[in-house]
């Protein structure tokens, strides 16, 4: 569905994306993960033809940017910074975009209902809350039922509740067979959003793996600080016996956590009869 070869983007003097290759097959969901400034958003914009690029981009069989018009008909887009005409009503906005996408009449209302905004259809876009806007953006991206969705940080700037609502919506899309390209900088979200993940850094792919393996692949160091009651030295010995790097730290324990298995030390201690009162995770080396 999406094929990208040698994608490079220069913005001014900066090489923002540098020779990127990847492909997303139909029904697959690929996440672009990386810190801010890694070039994720620029990749999405290049795919849409919003920024000039070199290299090959093919969307749903249409070569970009030459066939951009046809290609974009197959792509729904949720931008990172939602920029919609704030003075239009939610329904009015969707109707305008629906007309541009030649979406069936009535679809805007149906979509509004489906993202839970039916009661807010007459409200000005500018008056919607952040979560509502994000859902509206998703509805806008779904106009015309495009097979490909490009979601740029769809959950950024949402509170936890709104984030889980939206994650559920996106999960529904995956279930419905959409091809997804999602950018995020939240490690925890990757596995919820995508099958596969590309780790981006400085405009290049640093790693590529399954979404579940990301933490392991990254090998991110983290330390657990546990406060438990009992003989701490015994606890350390138990943990070391199971292969963890652990030491007594004041009245508690410090354990080097293994990505993907952070809870394991706690489980081990509880099973051995220690009472774990508190736990704190310190990320980074």
């Amino acid at each position: 569905m999406i094929r990208v070869e040698g994608l490079s983007v220069r913005l001014g003097q900066a090489q923002v994306v540098d020779g990127l290759d990847f492909a997303v097959s139909a029904g697959e969901s690929l996440a672009l993960w990386g810190q801010n400034g890694a070039g994720k958003t620029t990749v999405i914009r290049a795919l849409l033809g919003l920024v000039p690029f070199s290299g090959q981009v093919v969307l749903a069989g249409h070569q970009m940017p030459g066939e951009g018009r046809a290609a974009r008909a197959h792509v729904g887009y949720v931008p990172q910074q939602l920029a919609y005409y704030e003075d239009m009503s939610a329904l009015g906005l969707l109707r305008y975009l629906a007309a541009l996408r030649a979406a069936p009449h009535g679809e805007p209302q149906a979509l509004l209902a489906q993202v839970g905004l039916a009661d807010h259809s007459a409200k000005a876009v500018g008056a919607l809350s952040g979560g509502m806007k994000q859902r509206l953006a998703l509805a806008a991206a779904l106009l015309g039922d495009p097979p490909i969705l490009l979601l740029d940080e769809p959950t950024a700037s949402l509170d936890a509740g709104a984030r889980s609502e939206l994650t559920a919506l996106i999960a529904g899309l995956r279930a419905a067979g959409k091809t997804l390209l999602v950018t995020t900088h939240r490690l925890a979200e990757v596995s919820a959003l995508a099958d596969r993940v590309l780790v981006m850094e400085g405009g290049r792919v640093r790693a590529s793996c399954g979404a579940q393996e990301l933490e392991a692949v990254l090998g991110l160091p983290a330390r657990l600080h546990l406060r438990a009651s009992g003989d701490m030295n015994q606890a350390v010995a138990l943990l070391r016996a199971e292969g963890f790097t652990a030491q007594v730290n004041g009245r508690g324990l410090q354990v080097e956590a293994v990505p993907g298995r952070r809870a394991a030390p706690v489980v081990l201690l509880l099973a051995a009869g220690f009472a774990v009162d508190d736990i704190q995770i310190e990320e980074g080396p």
């Binding site: 849409l48 919003l50 018009r69 974009r72 887009y77 920029a83």
Partner: peptide, 14 residues
């Protein structure tokens, strides 16, 4: 500047 141009140009239009 408002960003709406990108939204518009992300649609199937030239």
């Amino acid at each position: 500047e408002r960003g709406t141009l990108a939204t518009l140009l992300a649609q199937p239009v030239t």
